[in-house]
């Protein structure tokens, strides 16, 4: 049994209108997504804004209501109502995107990091301070930081406070939603290194949500590409980057800026080719409603949403 298993997940947001303000339609933000994550691995979820990757992450942790489908975490279905009890969910934590807005400016670091502890564990005041100091040390901040406020820290330090809060309850799964997008490259490197270190140390599993393919490639063991609420391709990191199958994946891979200026012309040519193919064949990759097809196996580890017959290539 997989550590985390998502089965046919749907998250729809109602659109209300008409005279009686009834639900007239819905935005299908996540429209039939299934994947599995192994323990101790990093699963990268990639897509552009509006693709539903963040909604998927938030639905797993329960921040968005699930319309239908299953989120099976260690054998428990988190979507089922009877499982909305607390102790399953303490094992799943989240790191948010923006370290400037995800920490309450009026709270001290102590209160921010101790909040999950206060929810789940009855600690005395001195035990609590000790635990928080330990956590801060683990993320490389000095224990004196306890009584400071978020504005006294730099972006990278704030993100590490966010990480300290996420690991306070020794979770098993961390959903990291664009954890480094708001940071400078050098600080990014620091946070990414650190995330890998604690992953080894605490045997954490990450669901790493990002639009930056370079970073996802660096971090992930397995990657799922989302487009308009559905998966268009899924595979091991190697599969996705060396053998992209779906036109949308190809387009994403082609759009990554190449760090070597010598490749500029080659890259430009490659991008033009993909763009031509994209314009020519876009329709063939989607059904009449504009949805991606169901994933089909290409190899043992690699799945893509290719049309049933008349496969390109």
């Amino acid at each position: 049994m997989a550590f985390l298993e998502i089965n046919d997940l749907h998250v729809h947001f109602p659109i209300k209108g008409g005279i009686l303000n009834r639900t007239i339609d819905s935005v299908k933000a996540v429209n039939g997504v299934s994947f599995q994550v192994e323990q101790g691995k990093t699963y990268g979820l990639v897509g552009e804004s509006g693709s539903g990757k963040t909604t998927t992450g938030r639905a797993i942790i329960g921040l968005n209501e699930i319309t239908s489908g299953q989120v099976i975490f260690e054998g428990n279905d988190l979507a089922a109502t009877e499982n909305k009890k607390l102790d399953v969910k303490r094992d799943v934590q989240m790191i948010f995107q923006d370290p400037y807005s995800s920490l309450n400016p009026k709270k001290r670091v102590l209160d921010i990091v101790a909040e999950p502890l206060r929810n789940y564990e009855k600690l005395s005041r001195s035990q609590e301070v000790e635990r928080v100091a330990d956590l801060l040390e683990k993320v490389g901040l000095s224990p004196e930081s306890i009584f400071k406020y978020p504005h006294e820290f730099s972006g990278g330090q704030r993100q590490r406070i966010g990480i300290a809060r996420a690991i306070a309850l020794k979770p098993k799964l961390i959903i990291a939603d664009e954890p480094v997008s708001a940071l400078d490259v050098s600080v990014q490197a620091q946070v990414l290194n650190f995330m890998r270190e604690i992953q080894k140390e605490l045997n954490l599993t990450y669901l790493f949500i990002s639009h930056d393919l370079g970073i996802v490639k660096h971090m992930s063991d397995r990657i799922g590409i989302m487009y308009k609420g559905r998966f268009v391709e899924e595979g091991d990191t190697e599969d996705i980057f060396s053998n992209p199958q779906h036109i949308y994946t190809k387009r994403l891979v082609a759009a990554i800026p190449d760090i070597n200026p010598k490749n500029r012309d080659a890259q430009k040519k490659f991008r033009e080719e993909v763009q031509l193919e994209y314009q020519k064949d876009y329709g063939r990759y989607f059904d009449e409603k504009g949805l991606a097809f169901n994933l089909r196996n290409i190899s043992q580890t690699h799945l893509a949403a290719l049309p049933e017959i008349g496969v390109v290539e």
Partner: peptide
């Protein structure tokens, strides 16, 4: 050199990225 070294390189899989000390 530090900046260039702290970007995840798309060609090779490094375990650790270079970090510029301090801020």
């Amino acid at each position: 050199r530090s900046l260039l070294n702290s970007v995840p390189n798309s060609d090779e899989k490094q375990d650790k990225l270079h970090v510029i000390q301090g801020i």
